[in-house]
Simulated scan of single mutants.
Amino acid sequence: MMLTGKPRARTLTGIARAQVAAELKTKYERGASIRALAGEADRSYGYIRRLLLAAGVVFRPRGGVKRPGRPWEEA
Rank of each mutant, 00 (worst) to 15 (best):
Lys25Glu: 08
Glu74Pro: 07
Ser44Tyr: 00
Ala54Gln: 10
Pro7Met: 01
Leu52Phe: 03
Val20Arg: 14
Ala36Tyr: 10
Ala55Glu: 07
Ser33Pro: 10
Val57Thr: 08
Leu37Ser: 14
Pro68Ser: 10
Ile34Lys: 00
Arg17Glu: 12
Gly69Asn: 02
Ala32Glu: 12
Val58Asn: 09
Tyr28Gln: 13
Ile48Arg: 00
Pro68Gln: 09
Lys66Asn: 06
Arg43Val: 00
Gly14Trp: 10
Arg60Asp: 07
Arg30Trp: 06
Tyr45Ser: 00
Leu12Gln: 07
Ala21Gly: 08
Arg50Leu: 05
Ala32Phe: 13
Leu12Pro: 04
Glu74Leu: 07
Ala54His: 05
Ala55Lys: 07
Arg35Cys: 12
Glu73Asn: 09
Leu53Trp: 04
Lys66Ile: 03
Met1Gln: 11
Ala38Cys: 04
Thr13Lys: 13
Arg60Ile: 06
Leu24Trp: 13
Arg30Ser: 15
Ala41Ser: 13
Tyr45Cys: 00
Leu37Ile: 15
Met1Leu: 11
Ala22Cys: 11
Tyr28Cys: 13
Pro7Ser: 08
Gly31Phe: 08
Ala36His: 13
Thr13Met: 08
Ala32His: 14
Ile48Glu: 01
Ser44Ile: 00
Thr4Asp: 02
Gly64Asp: 02
Lys66Ser: 05
Glu29Ile: 02
Glu74Gly: 08
Arg17Val: 02
Gly14Ile: 10
Ser33Tyr: 06
Ser33Val: 01
Ala41Cys: 10
Lys66Gly: 07
Gly56Asp: 01
Ser44Pro: 03
Glu73Trp: 11
Ile34Glu: 00
Leu24Asn: 10
Arg49His: 08
Met1Trp: 07
Lys25Gln: 13
Thr11His: 06
Leu37Asn: 12
Ser33His: 04
Val20Asp: 11
Pro71Gly: 04
Leu52Asn: 01
Lys27Glu: 15
Pro61Gly: 04
Lys66Met: 05
Ala9Thr: 07
Ala22Leu: 12
Ala55Gly: 07
Trp72Ser: 05
Gln19Trp: 04
Thr4Glu: 04
Arg62Pro: 12
Glu74Ser: 09
Arg49Phe: 03
Glu74Tyr: 01
Glu29Gln: 11
Ala22Gly: 13
Val65Asp: 09
Ala32Val: 11
Gly69Asp: 03
Val58Ile: 10
Ala32Ser: 14
Leu53Asp: 11
Arg10Gly: 07
Ile48His: 02
Trp72Asp: 06
Trp72Met: 05
Thr13Gly: 06
Ile48Thr: 05
Glu40Pro: 00
Thr26Ser: 15
Trp72Asn: 04
Lys6Ile: 08
Arg70Gly: 01
Leu53Pro: 00
Ala38Lys: 04
Gly5Thr: 08
Tyr45Ile: 00
Glu73Pro: 02
Pro61Arg: 05
Lys25Tyr: 05
Leu37Gln: 14
Ile15Leu: 14
Ala54Met: 05
Ala21Leu: 04
Ala22Val: 11
Leu53Asn: 11
Tyr28Leu: 14
Thr11Lys: 09
Lys27Met: 14
Glu74Asp: 11
Asp42Leu: 12
Gly64Thr: 02
Glu40Thr: 12
Glu29Ala: 05
Glu29Arg: 07
Arg50Gln: 08
Pro7Leu: 03
Leu12Phe: 05
Tyr45Glu: 00
Tyr28His: 15
Ala21Arg: 05
Gly5Asp: 13
Leu53Arg: 11
Ser33Cys: 02
Thr11Val: 10
Trp72Thr: 08
Glu74His: 04
Val58Asp: 13
Ala36Thr: 11
Leu37His: 09
Gly5Glu: 13
Gly64Asn: 02
Arg50Tyr: 03
Glu23Phe: 12
Gly69Ser: 03
